[in-house]
Design a protein around this nucleic acid. Structure first.
Lengths: 219, 219
DNA sequence: GTGTAATTGTGTTATACAACACATTTGCGT
DNA sequence: ACGCAAATGTGTTGTATAACACAATTACAC
């Protein structure tokens, strides 16, 4: 339960326990969809989750990646509006669901929990604003390099300290970096030729992280 | 003072009054800059303010528009990081500054104030996520139409019920809709030819708002 | 295991938009 | 009122990237 757990007292923990519902999701299974009414605070216990939004002509943009133990699905509830994005499991995942009405009660009684969400929202908003500039201004190479770095920072490496601990489809990689699948594949290939990465199916090894960060930064 | 004021009790109002500092800013004057340490909660009392961020090669993206009475400048403080964007006055403006340390104390004591910021942050985050998709996926016409609608929704019309109540440079319009100044000018001209808008210098009249919304929506 | 669909990969073409270049107009300081 | 800089406006060229088209490979259902 991380972070939040240490904020709560005995009674509060009990209230959560009584209303905590564990669910498993299959690969690519939808957790909630754009337009849905927010009902639960989701806590990712195991697996990986993507938040995404589809735009013009159904084109998908991946907005955020969730890792254990992170919370999501609460923003729309606090904003008193339906979800503006969808969430789906990247791989088989285990999630905990807590009714947002309960969360609301807890926040009312525990200012530290309020601060937790204020911090979380503030952090995400900064990331979102930065992302606007990155996705609109950087060129393809910069955007893909950035995506690889984001994957590294979010999910880390396998034991070899260089293989990304996430195995995603080229299409997802494209949706994360705002480009077509064909261009994601192509650009990935040029990165391989430049010895920046090594690719084996969906296994991606970052061979020159500093240079990737430079490409990501420069654009 | 709007919204926040009604949340506070006598003592809290007194604390604010004692630490409230009114300042005026000239047209285009910077209020704070990317990288600065956040110190004040700003309250726009009069005028118009833009939040923006510069990216690759100094290219500027306008992220948000502020109108009276709105609060800004607090996100970075809550996220415990320096500002990731800058704020500047669009036109001569009057602002109130409250030290964020005071705001923090008030939030600690008044859960309604905490909720105010949770709502505000949640709302902005939803907007930011939506903006990512709009700016990356829509074509120039869609992005400019959207910008015009945003200006309308934010600042409204003059008494004639059609002239936008903001007079901004073509460059700002371009930075708002993620395009070059030349293309903003060009696209504005085609909109004039199509009788969607009328332009007289920086005065922009929306003649066919429903059609503009359609163009904005379709992309 | 075999067939079928999904995913990956690569070349070609089309196009939206940036970049550049320059003329014209407007605003502003003195 | 004058001069200069900034802002506006328009045509031309260049290019990044989408769109399309089609192999080759892989994954998966039955």
């Amino acid at each position: 339960m991380a972070e939040i757990w240490s904020i709560l007292n005995g009674d509060e923990k009990r209230l959560i326990m009584e209303n905590f519902n564990i669910q498993t999701y299959k690969k690519n299974q939808l957790i909630y969809a754009e337009g849905d009414e927010p009902k639960y605070l989701w806590c990712l216990l195991k697996g990986k989750v993507k938040k995404f939004k589809s735009g013009v002509g159904g084109r998908v943009q991946i907005l955020r990646l969730i890792r254990p133990v992170q919370y999501f699905g609460y923003r729309a509830y606090f904003a008193e509006e339906p979800y503006v994005s969808s969430a789906a499991a990247f791989e088989p995942s285990t999630l905990g669901a807590i009714p947002l009405s309960i969360v609301k009660e807890l926040i009312d009684k525990n200012i530290n929990l309020a601060w937790f969400f204020i911090r979380e929202l503030s952090h995400n908003l900064g990331g979102s604003d930065t992302r606007i500039v990155n996705l609109t201004q950087k060129h393809i190479r910069g955007r893909l390099a950035e995506a690889l770095i984001v994957l590294r920072d979010n999910y880390g490496y396998e034991d070899d300290q260089s293989t990304l601990k996430i195995y995603m489809a080229r299409e997802d990689l494209a949706n994360l970096s705002n480009m077509t699948t064909a261009n994601a594949i192509r650009t990935l290939s040029t990165f391989v030729n430049e010895r920046l990465i090594a690719v084996d199916g969906r296994r991606i090894k970052l061979l020159n992280e500093p240079q990737l960060r430079k490409i990501s930064k420069f654009g």
